[in-house]
Amino acid sequence: MKRLFAAAVIIIVILALSIAGYYLNNDLIDTTNELLSQSVSLSNREDKQGLIDAAEKACEYWESKAVPVLSSLIMHSEIDKISYHFKTLLLLAKDGNFEEYRVVCFECIATLEHIKDVQNPVLKNVLHII
């Protein structure tokens, strides 16, 4: 009976953590994408200093808030890929290369959206239907 109780508790805890992890994952990706979208509008206005500040803000949020949580949920190679994008964005912002900035930024947003999509607990993802 003790084992059964322990198993029930473990399942409940795992279920709670999984649900919380799912929402946290979505929240972190949405916020990161919002920060990136804001920086895209600054690059459209060709505001170099504003773009550097926005890119730094997005990069800091990604490194300090998103990475610690997401690295426990998704493959580390995906995290490294996005981190590389963020470093590239910072350099492009400092260089004032607005067009290239937008390209990398959209790529980064698309990758994050893809990660968010594949984490959705829908039949397509459960069965991994491509």
Binding site: R3, L4, A6, A7, A8, I10, I11, I14, S18
Partner: peptide, 12 residues
């Protein structure tokens, strides 16, 4: 998580 879930379901 899969290890713990498998063990719990084995107990059930």
């Amino acid at each position: 998580i899969p290890v713990l879930v498998l063990v719990c379901f084995e107990i059930f």
